[in-house]
Computed example of a mutant assay.
Amino acid sequence: MTALFQRREASAVERLQARDYIQHNPTIPQGRDALQALVATYRRPFITSPA
């Protein structure tokens, strides 16, 4: 999650997600190619804080 959503490393999808990755968000297409494309569009990192 840190590599993908905070550092926006789209290339990390290949190392971290299986080829048959199942996306559970209905607004994002299935597969890691779609996830990689999505991460590549992010301009600012997501900032998370403890609950």
Score class of each variant (00 low, 15 high):
M1G: 06
M1N: 03
M1H: 06
T2L: 12
T2V: 12
T2G: 08
A3C: 01
A3Q: 07
L4C: 05
L4S: 02
F5M: 09
F5V: 08
Q6D: 04
Q6T: 14
Q6P: 00
R7M: 09
R7N: 12
R7A: 10
R7W: 04
R8D: 00
R8A: 06
R8N: 10
R8T: 01
E9Q: 14
E9P: 00
E9H: 06
E9A: 12
E9C: 03
E9D: 14
A10I: 01
A10N: 01
A10R: 03
S11A: 15
S11D: 13
S11T: 07
S11K: 11
A12S: 11
A12L: 10
V13T: 10
V13H: 00
V13F: 01
E14Y: 09
E14R: 14
R15G: 06
R15K: 12
R15S: 11
R15D: 09
L16P: 01
L16C: 02
L16N: 01
L16Y: 04
L16M: 08
L16V: 00
Q17C: 15
Q17V: 12
Q17G: 03
A18G: 05
A18D: 06
A18Q: 08
A18R: 11
R19H: 09
R19F: 03
R19L: 10
D20S: 08
I22V: 15
I22K: 15
Q23G: 08
Q23L: 13
Q23W: 12
Q23D: 09
Q23M: 15
Q23Y: 11
H24M: 07
N25Q: 09
N25L: 11
N25K: 07
P26H: 05
T27R: 14
I28K: 04
Q30G: 09
Q30R: 13
Q30V: 08
G31C: 12
R32K: 15
D33T: 05
D33K: 10
A34W: 01
A34C: 05
L35A: 13
Q36P: 02
Q36R: 15
Q36T: 08
A37P: 02
A37Q: 09
A37H: 06
L38G: 02
L38R: 09
L38Y: 12
V39C: 05
V39W: 02
V39P: 02
V39E: 03
V39T: 04
A40N: 05
T41E: 12
T41S: 14
T41R: 15
T41V: 04
T41M: 14
Y42D: 00
Y42C: 06
R43I: 03
R43E: 10
R43S: 09
R44M: 13
R44L: 15
R44V: 14
P45A: 04
P45L: 03
P45T: 00
F46H: 08
F46D: 00
I47D: 02
T48H: 06
T48W: 07
S49V: 13
S49P: 01
P50E: 15
P50M: 14
P50I: 13
A51S: 12
A51H: 10
A51C: 07
